[in-house]
């Protein structure tokens, strides 16, 4: 497509404020961006950064405090619960971290479920659901219940369910959060391929920066604010990203006994050495983590490193 694709999602000055007693918490603080049709957009941020809240706001699951969210020209925050439900039936698909499959139903029935809400005739929806499951490689597991499948298989059922109604936009909230690295790649490939087949727009939330490689646009979020929007040229980004990933993993493996200063030093060295990075590398402690920022031309990498090897990756 040579022509500039239409904007399918537009956020303008979106705020979400939670009140905890007298304290205001800015979960999403004045965020504006837009996503074009067919784009794979990744909301990247640490846990608690407000990225999931942002996704929920876009999907209409949570109400904004102020600002506008336009999806396909519709004001999501102003829609009634009923019209939102119909809107979701027609245009939105969802993939969840914890799959959110209905345990009492077989894979086929789970995939069929969104079509039931759309009043699709029985035979047609069975056929569509089956086709979808075959596409995600579960053609032989149609009548298995979620508990009888592995995490990767369950997530593939989840993907089939998200895509079965051919929605224009699919929201994915940490789709690989519960999967190992091998399945993560499988699942991500699947999502990307599905989206490309039908020119669907994907909005994915993740804290795993390696997944950002799949995205056309990466929006970095920190403390409810956009730190940067990155639109890497599709070709040159992946290698560098991998290098950073590799560095991070190594550091994290041995840092348990190290002090913050030591970690900082080591991270900096590794970055400069392994990435052969001529630009200055900034490191700074931040809320119990060490963040390393490599400034290279227009690109920013925000790498969280935990002080002691416990907790999340």
């Amino acid at each position: 497509m040579d022509k500039e694709p239409e904007k399918i999602i537009e956020l303008v000055n979106v705020k979400k404020i939670y009140r905890m007693g007298n304290e205001k918490i800015y979960a999403v603080d004045d965020v504006s961006f837009d996503i074009k049709k067919g784009e794979f957009c990744c909301l990247l941020g640490t846990s608690g950064s407000g990225k999931s809240t942002l996704l929920n706001l876009m999907a209409g699951i949570e109400k904004v405090t102020s600002g506008t969210i336009l999806i396909k020209g519709k004001q999501i925050p102003k829609m009634s619960e009923n019209s939102l439900a119909r809107f979701r039936q027609r245009y939105l698909g969802f993939v969840f971290q914890s799959y959110n499959l209905l345990n009492s139903m077989t894979a086929l029935e789970n995939v069929e479920f969104p079509l039931v809400f759309k009043r699709v005739p029985l035979k047609k929806r069975k056929r569509l659901a089956k086709e979808m499951l075959v596409k995600v490689g579960l053609g032989r597991r149609l009548h298995h219940k979620p508990k009888e499948m592995s995490g990767g298989q369950q997530q593939r059922v989840g993907i089939a369910r998200a895509f079965v109604a051919k929605p224009e936009i699919v929201f994915a909230d940490e789709p690989t959060g519960n999967l190992d690295s091998k399945t993560t790649i499988e699942v991500m490939e699947l999502i990307r391929q599905m989206a490309r087949d039908n020119n669907q727009t994907i909005v994915m939330v993740t804290h795993d920066r390696s997944l950002a490689t799949y995205a056309d646009k990466v929006i970095h979020i920190l403390d409810g604010k956009i730190q940067s929007i990155e639109e890497p040229a599709a070709e040159n980004l992946p290698e560098e990203t991998k290098a950073v990933e590799c560095a991070t993993e190594e550091i994290m493996g041995e840092e348990a006994t190290q002090t913050t200063e030591e970690v900082k030093k080591e991270v900096t060295e590794k970055f400069v050495k392994e990435m052969k990075c001529p630009e200055p590398v900034q490191t700074f402690p931040e809320k119990g983590k060490v963040a390393v920022r490599v400034v290279k031309k227009t690109k920013q990498f925000h790498v969280p490193v935990q002080r002691n090897g416990k907790g999340k990756q």
């Binding site: 619960e81 439900a85 119909r86 979701r88 039936q89 027609r90 479920f113 969104p114 809400f117």
Partner: peptide, 16 residues
């Protein structure tokens, strides 16, 4: 409860 939440997100009308 969870099932109801999922149904809602998948586009099930409140009425249903």
């Amino acid at each position: 409860t969870k099932e109801i939440g999922v149904m809602k997100v998948l586009g099930c009308l409140v009425r249903d």
